[in-house]
Amino acid sequence: MKAIIVDDERLALKKMENLLREQVDLDGRIELIGTYNNAHAALEAARREEVDLAFLDIEMPEINGFELAEQLLKIHPCLSIIFVTAYQEYAVKAFEMNALDYLMKPVHHSRLTVTLQRFMASKEKTARSTEEAKKAMLCCMQRLHYQDTQGRTQSFPWKTLKAPELFAYLVFHRDKTVSKQILIDLLWPDYDTERATTQLHTAIYQIRKIIKTAGLELSIKYMDEGYRLVWGEEKLDVDEWENGVRQAPPVMPETLDQHLAIMALYTGNYLEEHRYIWADYEQERMRLIWLQHVKQIAECFKTLGRHTEAIMLYQKIRETCPDLEDGYFELMKMYAAMNHQGEVRKQFQLISNRLKEEFDVSPSKELIDWYEQWKPGMKE
């Protein structure tokens, strides 16, 4: 890990250099590659070679520490910045720039040790995240497929229709033993025992072969008169998304970007393209979690006055959950507030027709009452 120090005061620069060299000698994982008493020289050095860590004084002529940090980050986006100053009032702005730390002069040896430990921990965490990102991921959103270690989407070359359903069922019940009889009753209910058993063995053989060819760290074990899919190091897209939703902080303006990133992980309903009847409950469960999450994000957009983004999300809710009133109703309210009367009528007609055609019912009393109360205020 390569470090630089920038300070226009030569004595302060020399003291910081000595302190860091003492730490470098003890640690050995950080190399001090240069000290600079002006920002231009530091930028020249950064253009010539890699820099991982920069100690920057804040009050410097021509280019101050904050401006220098911005320019250095354009050259090395992963650079860690540590501001060093005699003035406490810069602390808030320093951390707004996502600085790793903020050191007050005179810097003490023990305080610098804490900073460098924080820096190394941050780099190790990044390295672990990068390593985890290289693992393959099995995907059940929209359809059964996988992403290889390079992040490329890959399809499974199935030769029969029952093998992928068997694989998907074992994935759903991963790390649990499913009896042979349950599998036979599910997939080959009209076959006699001997023929169904043969079909089961053939499908298991095909799945094992495909798992091996794809390089997935999964295995199928036969035990207790049943089969168990033993999970390896792979990620599962539905787990990644659901864990993200459940572990995230509440949706607020400050956390909006984090929630948008989580929302982007939901790339389709659970095994929707395959139409497996046994997957209906899980599909609906996941879709309702998604619905509540997206509604919270849309409400946050409304609070911020970002009505276009909110409308787009409600439209997405309507498309993803076409049999639920949520998307239509929220669009009606938003269009009413914007005095788009034609759109309000359109959404009411869409949900009314949908419910009539699919279930032979009318919209809820709440929606109808709201619509009837809104109608007297309409301008023809």
Rank of each mutant, 00 (worst) to 15 (best):
T160C: 04
L161P: 01
L161V: 03
K162I: 05
K162T: 15
A163Y: 11
P164N: 10
P164C: 09
E165Q: 13
E165K: 08
L166S: 11
L166V: 06
L166I: 09
L166F: 15
L166T: 02
F167N: 03
A168G: 12
A168K: 05
Y169T: 01
L170D: 06
V171M: 12
V171R: 10
V171S: 09
F172T: 00
F172I: 01
F172A: 05
H173C: 03
R174W: 07
R174I: 07
R174A: 12
D175C: 06
K176N: 05
K176I: 03
T177P: 01
T177A: 06
T177E: 01
T177Q: 02
T177S: 04
V178F: 15
S179W: 04
S179P: 00
S179A: 15
K180V: 00
K180I: 03
Q181W: 07
Q181V: 13
I182R: 15
I182A: 12
I182Y: 10
I182C: 09
L183Q: 10
D185V: 02
D185R: 07
D185A: 11
D185K: 10
D185M: 02
D185P: 00
D185S: 13
D185L: 02
L186D: 01
L187Q: 12
L187M: 08
W188A: 07
Y191V: 01
T193P: 00
T193K: 08
R195P: 00
T197K: 11
L200H: 08
H201Q: 14
H201I: 13
H201N: 14
H201F: 15
H201R: 15
A203H: 09
I204W: 09
Y205L: 06
Y205M: 08
Y205V: 09
Y205D: 11
Q206P: 02
Q206M: 02
I207P: 03
R208L: 08
R208Q: 09
K209M: 06
K209I: 00
K209G: 07
K209V: 04
I210P: 00
I211E: 01
I211V: 14
K212F: 12
K212H: 12
T213M: 04
T213A: 06
T213V: 07
